[in-house]
Amino acid sequence: MAKHPLNVVVVGGGSIGGLIAHEITLAHGRTLDLKLMFKNNESANVYKRRGSQLVLDRIDNYGNKKRTTSAIQGLTAEQWSKGPIKKIDNLILATKCHKSFSALSPFANLLHKDSNVLFIQNGMGLMDSIEEQFWPSSINPRPNFYKAIITHGAYKASPSIINHVGLGDMTISCYPRNPLDPHSPDTPHMIDMILKTPNLNAKYIENYNEFKLRELEKLAVNCCINPLTAIFDCLNGDLLEGSRVLNIMKSILREFVMVIKKDNPELFETLPEASSYLNIDRLLGIVTEVATTTSKNSSSMREDMKSFGGTEIDFINGYICRLGRKHKIGTHTNNMLVWMVKSKSSIESAIDDKYTKLML
């Protein structure tokens, strides 16, 4: 047990960042010094006016609403910089991939080689880019990186109210400094605290290659559902009504499997289950199962498109395209989806700007 309260900074005051901050505060509040960073002054000030408390609503197994409340200091990076600045030992980054660089920037120089950073995002390829931007030299080693796959369903009703609509789980692993040694060191106190938080249902995988298989499965699902729902502007389940959509998904997954096998030979050399796990037919079955079980959900990319805030396409299908260029493997379907999502996003933004000017 730590002698002093564990200092943790959660960057990203959205639904998932708020959910994690809320649950670990309820479970470990007396041994925790946690700060929740909001993206702008407006959200942070609304949160403060409502008592600096996070409210979480959850439906229990009997259909009854259960409300819990936690007191957490919430502020922006700018507001925090005006106070006494100290080194950050633990940071949880729970922002969209494309917003992670700007979100992490105010805090990067306060992290040190013994700090622990937990990344909670969709997509892949972010962590190498983060390391390259903020810790490019071996003279200034990067912090310890951890990754999480999260299946909890949550959305924000306001800056201080979270609706936890789908009880899921978290899977965490250490992102190794040396790819040839995928086994993680001892888990730090922050990770251990998360593992001991009941409502997060978290588990830890010591072998990063085993974790990566699960991460790649989620990426395959996102590669199919996210861009297609954004382009066709439909709910997840509606995709299965399209007469040619399964053919498009098969093409996405065919390219996905080719580049993943080429780029990750260690997975197939060390894990006997890798070939069957990353089989096209199996992955297509997972995609259709997820589309069915989340049939009434609107994907995060579709919602991002509607809010004109940019999308994570570069870290989902775009990641597959980058691996294709790296290994000289064609990824024509994934390329087309990236272009279509970016084009639709730019068209939607231009139309919105045009109507805004007309209103003025």
Rank of each mutant, 00 (worst) to 15 (best):
202 A>E: 06
287 V>P: 05
20 I>H: 07
213 L>R: 05
212 K>Q: 10
190 M>D: 05
34 L>K: 03
262 K>S: 15
152 H>C: 02
197 T>E: 09
304 D>S: 15
151 T>L: 09
186 D>Y: 02
353 D>F: 10
6 L>S: 03
354 K>L: 14
60 D>V: 07
88 I>R: 02
173 S>Q: 08
145 F>G: 00
160 S>V: 01
48 K>H: 10
360 L>C: 08
183 H>R: 13
189 H>T: 14
57 D>P: 00
80 W>T: 06
122 N>A: 06
6 L>G: 03
182 P>M: 11
189 H>M: 11
36 L>N: 04
134 F>I: 07
332 H>P: 06
292 T>I: 08
296 K>G: 00
63 G>L: 07
355 Y>L: 15
95 T>M: 07
299 S>C: 10
236 N>W: 08
51 G>R: 12
282 R>Y: 14
25 T>F: 06
57 D>I: 03
39 K>V: 04
198 P>T: 12
201 N>C: 08
294 T>F: 03
13 G>W: 00
228 L>P: 00
17 G>A: 10
177 R>Q: 15
170 M>Q: 05
53 Q>N: 10
87 K>W: 05
175 Y>S: 04
302 R>N: 13
319 Y>D: 01
79 Q>W: 07
181 D>F: 13
126 L>W: 00
296 K>N: 12
258 M>L: 15
212 K>D: 03
108 A>V: 08
299 S>K: 04
350 A>E: 13
8 V>M: 05
346 S>E: 12
315 F>C: 02
112 H>T: 13
126 L>A: 07
273 E>L: 07
54 L>I: 10
72 I>M: 06
304 D>Q: 10
63 G>M: 07
9 V>F: 06
260 I>M: 09
307 S>A: 13
192 D>Y: 04
356 T>K: 14
143 P>A: 12
8 V>A: 01
321 C>Y: 08
110 L>Y: 13
358 L>D: 14
56 L>C: 11
